[in-house]
Write a protein that binds this DNA or RNA. Sequence first.
RNA 1: AGGCCCGUAGCUCAGUUGGUUAGAGCGCUACCUUGACACGGUAGAGGUCUGGGGUUCGAGUCCCCACGGGCCUACCA
Length: 900
Amino acid sequence: MAREIAKAYEPQQIEPRWADFWVKEELFKADANAPGPVFSIVIPPPNVTGSLHIGHMLEHTEIDILTRWHRMRGYNTLYLPGTDHAGISTQRVVVKHLMDQGIDYHKLGREEFEKLVWKWKAEAGSEITQQMRSIGESCDWSRERFTLSPEMSHVVREVFVRLYEEGLIYREKRLVNWCPVCLTVLSDLEVAHEERQGYLWHIKYPVVGSGQFLVVATTRPETMLGDTAVAVHPEDERYKHLVGKKVLLPLMNREIPIIADDMVDREFGTGAVKITPAHDPNDFEMGRRHKLLEIDVMTDDGHMNANAGAYAGLDRFEARKRVVEDLKAQGLIEKISEHTHPIGICERSKTIVEPRISKQWFCRMKPMAEPAIAAVERGEIQIVPENRREEYFNWMRNIRDWTLSRQLWWGHRIPAWYCKENKHVTVAREAPTKCATCGSTNIEQDSDVLDTWFSSGLWPFSTLGWPENTADFKTYYPTTLLITGYDILFFWVARMVMMGIHFTGKVPFRAVYLHSLVRTGSGEKMSKSKGTGLDPVALNQQYGTDAMRFCLASMAAPGTDIVLSEDKLASARNFANKIWNAARFLFVNLDKFEASGTKLEELAAPEVRAKAPYTYRGEMALVDGWLFNRLAVTARGVKSALESYRFHEAGHDIYQFFWGDFCDWYIEWIKPELQNPDRERAVVAWRNLFSAFATALRLLHPFMPFLTEELWHQLPQNAGAKSIALDTYPQPGEERLHLEYLMQFQLIQEVVVALRTIRSDMKLDPKKRVAAELFVWDGLARDAIRRSQDGIVRLGILSQLTITEKPMAQVGGMMRSTAQFDVRIAYSDNVDMAVEKTRLKKEIEGMQRAIESKERQLGDETFRSRAPEKIIKGLEATLAEQRIELRKLQDRLSQLEKDS
RNA sequence: AGGCCCGUAGCUCAGUUGGUUAGAGCGCUACCUUGACACGGUAGAGGUCUGGGGUUCGAGUCCCCACGGGCCUACCA
């Protein structure tokens, strides 16, 4: 039967089929009761609002590679998918959606709004998980989780109440980061710092009863409306005499005290600082120390409030202008200087964050941070790359309390109820009917929700059934590994570690691999909102998901950010095409061979894999010995690379093997064998080819799941089998490598390349067959080569090859020599001896340099006494070879010079 | 302000504990439409590893300084 196989690899034709197959067959459903070592990984839940971006593509590629790899190696494997309700993002998306329809969400009311978000989630919230299916991620979809599902909410509430009962959660009025656009408080981590060009306004505050002025410097003049003091350093001679006096706050005509506090920097500005406790973190602390008034002069949405007097109602930036103008008019601006300073930006709305006094829920972090630090110190959690450990420690050691509440409607509502009669607080798992303290039924639940990261922090155990001791929890917790971006080390990783240890007594994962970020050519982080991102979905469509995966993996060196380009994708696509065509070669030739009357079963015996490499009457072909050893070397390399998250190295090894060894040499070499009239020989060749190809496919499968699944199914030995994903992964053999195969075939490769190089230098017609002579120094190798003569003749495009028993004189024809062999093409047309001489001279120079440096080193007593034996031996061996080569080159050159 | 990372071939980047003539992909040059593959084949050119100093028998690799680029943390008004 003739097989239909397209001439070029067309991923669009095969990917959707396997993506569906994997999902429908529930191929990756985990079984908590299955035997074997466990590999479990939970997904960093993407936002429900999201769609797959290039960062996910990288992350999910890495996760899926390791997941498939472990599964194939026989681990009880769970890759648990899910999404995050993403409070602020989702609420913003839906609010905007409503606005587009002319609906103000405030008017809908909370309940109605929440219903709409759920509806929206049901309709649009599975885009990313659908995309994950279509790119073939080997998740267990039966265990998909959502951070705001009833089950997860139950866990969140349990955790909140326990923390409250333990005194780790408290409610307090203090200075927080407020976003006037999102209308919510933010945690420190959600505030980005940016250097901005601004001004330093020097404002003259009249000292009461003296006619003098005290000049303060500020970057935010509008906040002066809320000033309740001016502070100077207690030892500042310039101002000592003023401490205890008062200034008259301009524009507000309020008398405020001059205080002394050593937090003041005498060097900065004028050395006198206005104090606005309600709008600046420093001032707030100082205010509390000195029991100053805290006057909030702004509204939620960044306008001035009634406390701002004449400025009430103005936008904060407008107010700044007006304040400055008015001060100028009164002659109270002493000077204005340019000043670059960092300001806080809301990560979502990009507006300037306003520090503000507000009553919020906080989580005490220090007690939880300590065990989290210890766990990493003791190595219970491995952080990769290691240099991130220090960042982790640094942040953990300086940790500050976490602002938990958010003024949103979408999220886990805080399980706290306030007694309206006497302000008692009831925190409970189940909604209470009355105040726990006074019994009043006049209670109301806190209207805020929890920071989204609070529920994400529980993800590794909430998804596995905690607080019940479920089978999943028992088997899969702690998870084996977490793969996520280093940009959320604090947001998420650190918090999971703290929560995990606190609640389960165990670390949530044994290792964290922090992957790179994908950047644009100009070094920016790729971002959809900035329009600088490449769209992985479109690119997958164009180049193939496998190509994308392979490309990303090949670039994913730990600790290095990735700059992706279409060039690189094309190169990965070409690799996929190469494999496709290797398969095509197999099948086209198989058809021919079958046509000559061979039964497929003979070639595709089920044990084909197990017994490979096959021999012909006990005799191993050198090329087979070589190829299977190369395969073993590759499997070894891939294993050690993946064990240490060096995806790029694994990818490179496989690429090298598949293209360089398998396609360029093996296939070329065995071509005649496959149609060998000696049927027995041909069958051996076919079995080895099938076996090697299938092994290579299995090696590649975690990287390119679609292509390998497709081709694997077409191999006769896999007829009727379920999936390559459930097949075994090639393990590096226990037995030692047979180095002689590797070395002997490598020698052949060198000979063939030397022949081709000579031909190329001679500008020989590529089809012109010429006679050549070969001498090989090593007797064993010479015998091996004699048996491989036909191959050399074919690949070197020779008419005949004479293998001599003696070294060759460096005369006549065109030659190449190494320490191991001499090869000559006895053909002298077209030879430009001047070019040959130049080449020889250049090579001699290089060789002399190499030899001299080695001689110098080896002649150095200190080197000999201190360098390891291995290095010295190696150097000596190389030196000996190079001396031989040099002598040959010199002989050759002088011969040529004599001739001319 | 503190910390971290990077600067290697025209481009994008590898280079695990310092050790033998520094690698890959793309690009480039020449030749080749050969029965798997032009998304291809064959051969080749091209870096002395940003600069300077140091440690060492030996440095792309370790240390210091400078220059250039990036990131993170941070309450300098």
